[in-house]
């Protein structure tokens, strides 16, 4: 889209209006930095669409991101956006949400940011259960630094630091999040954009920590290195590897990520949201004194 074709910011969104992604974006940063074929832009669109349908005031939205390709997405969103340090967006988000429960805090992170350097923060964010939505874009690679192996790189795949093929096992991030106590866990591929949008809506609406793994694609670096085809080919192949809503007994015996992944809402629970729990406990302790 050319700059002149971009509409002026439409202000507060309403679902009565048709969804126009440009009314949720900052226009002065275009053209954007994403490579052709990158799945991250689709995920961004789905997130904006979910926010639009939930009719959340943009002033109340806080986007917290880390470092990497995923980390750069926040800057394009017309909201309160915080581009933080590598691996730490969940830590920043915890402070922000505890200090400002009125804000809708959404973390955008990647597989390296969230599962490697920030892995400890993920498991504790799941355990703590603050009302934060964490959207992890999994493209199986460190794209911004040039294509190194990540904790979700499939076995045998080539990256710049696995020139002979990856010999390490990959995380199943959703099972990790569920085991750590996340209140709402789901996964979707980018090609199913309306389904992804609905999943994100449920995640944002959920009062507690929600973890959404978006299976994204890095066509330019990872796809090329592994001969996975162009972007449409990559995302269609991803789709064929997914097992919608089939989470359950099927993969429980597999310690790490299997070849076929379930999608949809994978687990929910009704644990109390931590910020409310803390404030209520402190208020009642104060009354007793």
């Amino acid at each position: 889209m050319t700059k002149t074709a971009i509409k002026k910011n439409a202000g507060k969104a309403s679902s009565k209006n048709a969804f126009d992604v440009m009314s949720y974006l900052r226009h002065d940063l275009f053209p954007h930095f994403l490579c052709p074929g990158c799945g991250h832009g689709i995920a961004l669109r789905a997130l904006m669409w979910a926010i639009h349908e939930l009719e959340i005031d943009k002033d109340r939205i806080a986007i917290v991101s880390g470092i990497g390709c995923s980390g750069r997405l926040g800057a394009y969103i017309d909201a309160n956006t915080f581009h933080t340090t590598h691996g730490r967006p969940l830590a920043f988000a915890a402070g922000l949400k505890l200090a400002r429960p009125d804000l809708e805090v959404i973390v955008i992170t990647g597989d390296g940011d969230c599962l490697a350097i920030g892995g400890n923060h993920l498991i504790h964010a799941c355990r703590r259960n603050l009302d934060i939505t964490c959207m992890m874009l999994n493209n199986e690679v460190y794209g911004m630094t040039g294509g190194q192996v990540s904790p979700t790189t499939s076995e045998d795949r080539y990256t710049t630091t696995t020139p002979l093929g990856n010999t390490e096992a990959a995380f199943d991030a959703c099972r990790l999040a569920e085991a750590a106590g996340a209140g709402f866990v789901g996964r979707e591929v980018t090609v199913q954009t309306p389904t992804l949008k609905n999943l994100l809506k449920d995640a944002i609406a959920y009062n507690g920590f929600s973890f959404i793994e978006v299976i994204s694609d890095c066509t330019e670096i990872y796809g090329r290195k592994n001969d996975l085809g162009n972007s449409p080919e990559m995302i269609l192949s991803q789709k064929s590897q997914m097992r919608p809503n089939s989470y359950g007994g099927v993969i429980v015996d597999e310690p790490f990520r299997p070849n076929a992944l379930p999608t949809g809402v994978l687990s929910t629970n009704a644990r109390p949201e931590y910020g409310e729990t803390y404030r209520n406990a402190m208020a009642s302790a104060k009354r007793k004194k």
């Binding site: 915890a94 505890l98 400002r100 400890n120």
Partner: peptide
């Protein structure tokens, strides 16, 4: 590290 991150997050929240 998380402690420092949370402090910055809270301060950015005002």
């Amino acid at each position: 590290i998380a402690s420092m991150g949370a402090v910055l997050g809270a301060s950015m929240g005002g």
